[in-house]
Protein backbone atom coordinates (compact mmCIF):
# COMPACT_ATOMS: atom_id res chain seq x y z
CA UNK A 1 0.00 0.00 0.00
CA UNK A 2 1.41 3.30 -1.05
CA UNK A 3 0.53 5.08 2.18
CA UNK A 4 3.00 2.91 4.06
CA UNK A 5 5.70 3.31 1.44
CA UNK A 6 8.33 5.96 2.09
CA UNK A 7 8.59 8.79 -0.45
CA UNK A 8 12.27 8.19 -0.92
CA UNK A 9 13.95 4.81 -1.26
CA UNK A 10 15.23 3.93 2.21
CA UNK A 11 16.89 0.57 1.72
CA UNK A 12 20.30 -0.15 0.31
CA UNK A 13 20.01 -3.73 -0.88
CA UNK A 14 18.74 -5.15 -4.16
CA UNK A 15 15.37 -3.55 -4.82
CA UNK A 16 12.26 -4.64 -6.56
CA UNK A 17 8.63 -3.97 -5.67
CA UNK A 18 8.39 -7.06 -3.49
CA UNK A 19 11.37 -6.04 -1.43
CA UNK A 20 10.00 -2.52 -1.01
CA UNK A 21 6.61 -3.89 -0.04
CA UNK A 22 8.11 -6.18 2.53
CA UNK A 23 10.18 -3.33 3.91
CA UNK A 24 7.15 -1.08 4.29
CA UNK A 25 5.29 -3.91 6.01
CA UNK A 26 8.10 -4.23 8.51
CA UNK A 27 8.02 -0.52 9.21
CA UNK A 28 4.21 -0.49 9.55
CA UNK A 29 4.34 -3.41 11.96
CA UNK A 30 6.99 -1.70 14.04
CA UNK A 31 4.97 1.51 14.24
CA UNK A 32 1.71 -0.23 15.20
CA UNK A 33 3.11 -2.83 17.56
CA UNK A 34 2.27 -1.10 20.88
CA UNK A 35 -1.31 -0.59 19.74
CA UNK A 36 -1.63 -4.22 18.69
CA UNK A 37 -0.23 -5.44 21.96
CA UNK A 38 -2.56 -3.19 23.95
CA UNK A 39 -5.60 -4.50 22.07
CA UNK A 40 -4.42 -8.08 22.49
CA UNK A 41 -4.07 -7.48 26.20
CA UNK A 42 -7.59 -6.04 26.44
CA UNK A 43 -9.03 -8.98 24.52
CA UNK A 44 -7.37 -11.55 26.77
CA UNK A 45 -8.08 -9.79 30.05
CA UNK A 46 -11.08 -11.61 31.58
CA UNK A 47 -11.57 -9.05 34.34
CA UNK A 48 -12.65 -6.44 31.80
CA UNK A 49 -16.27 -6.10 30.68
CA UNK A 50 -17.26 -8.28 27.75
CA UNK A 51 -18.27 -5.25 25.72
CA UNK A 52 -14.85 -3.64 25.98
CA UNK A 53 -13.21 -6.86 24.94
CA UNK A 54 -15.52 -7.26 21.98
CA UNK A 55 -14.78 -3.71 20.85
CA UNK A 56 -11.08 -4.40 21.18
CA UNK A 57 -11.47 -7.52 19.05
CA UNK A 58 -13.21 -5.52 16.36
CA UNK A 59 -10.58 -2.83 16.46
CA UNK A 60 -7.81 -5.36 16.15
CA UNK A 61 -9.41 -7.02 13.15
CA UNK A 62 -9.97 -3.66 11.53
CA UNK A 63 -6.32 -2.67 11.70
CA UNK A 64 -4.51 -2.63 8.39
CA UNK A 65 -3.11 -5.95 7.26
CA UNK A 66 0.35 -4.37 6.86
CA UNK A 67 0.56 -4.02 10.62
CA UNK A 68 0.37 -7.79 11.11
CA UNK A 69 3.60 -9.60 11.90
CA UNK A 70 2.55 -12.54 9.77
CA UNK A 71 2.79 -10.38 6.67
CA UNK A 72 6.56 -10.15 7.05
CA UNK A 73 8.59 -12.55 4.94
CA UNK A 74 12.35 -12.85 4.84
CA UNK A 75 13.72 -12.04 1.43
CA UNK A 76 17.10 -12.37 -0.21
CA UNK A 77 19.06 -9.11 -0.07
CA UNK A 78 20.84 -9.98 -3.30
CA UNK A 79 17.96 -11.17 -5.46
CA UNK A 80 14.70 -10.57 -3.64
CA UNK A 81 13.79 -14.24 -3.69
CA UNK A 82 11.51 -15.36 -0.88
CA UNK A 83 12.30 -19.06 -0.80
CA UNK A 84 15.36 -20.85 0.45
CA UNK A 85 16.62 -17.81 2.34
CA UNK A 86 19.22 -18.55 5.00
CA UNK A 87 18.33 -16.57 8.07
CA UNK A 88 21.92 -16.09 9.19
CA UNK A 89 22.96 -14.41 5.95
CA UNK A 90 19.65 -13.05 4.56
CA UNK A 91 20.53 -14.74 1.28
CA UNK A 92 19.11 -17.50 -0.83
CA UNK A 93 20.99 -20.75 -0.90
CA UNK A 94 22.49 -20.06 -4.32
CA UNK A 95 23.66 -16.54 -3.52
CA UNK A 96 25.00 -17.83 -0.23
CA UNK A 97 27.02 -20.49 -2.05
CA UNK A 98 28.44 -17.99 -4.53
CA UNK A 99 29.40 -15.53 -1.80
CA UNK A 100 30.86 -18.24 0.42
CA UNK A 101 32.99 -19.61 -2.40
CA UNK A 102 34.15 -16.10 -3.24
CA UNK A 103 35.20 -15.65 0.39
CA UNK A 104 32.91 -12.72 1.08
CA UNK A 105 31.39 -14.22 4.19
CA UNK A 106 33.79 -14.05 7.13
CA UNK A 107 34.59 -17.42 8.62
CA UNK A 108 32.52 -19.48 6.19
CA UNK A 109 34.52 -22.29 4.66
CA UNK A 110 33.84 -25.46 2.74
CA UNK A 111 33.24 -28.11 5.32
CA UNK A 112 34.29 -31.72 5.34
CA UNK A 113 34.10 -33.94 8.34
Amino acid sequence: MSMFRSKKLDIGCFTNIKIIRDHSKRKAFEAAEPERQALRYVIRNTTLPARTRAIAQLQLTQMHCYTRPTQIRNRCVLGGKARGVLRAFKMTRYNFRMEALAGNLPGVKKASW
Binding site: A100, K110, A111
Partner: peptide, 8 residues
Protein backbone atom coordinates in the same frame (compact mmCIF):
# COMPACT_ATOMS: atom_id res chain seq x y z
CA UNK B 1 25.04 -30.64 -2.47
CA UNK B 2 27.78 -28.67 -0.80
CA UNK B 3 28.60 -28.21 2.88
CA UNK B 4 29.76 -24.99 4.44
CA UNK B 5 30.72 -24.32 8.00
CA UNK B 6 31.66 -21.46 10.24
CA UNK B 7 33.64 -22.19 13.39
CA UNK B 8 33.61 -19.55 16.06
Amino acid sequence: QENFERIT
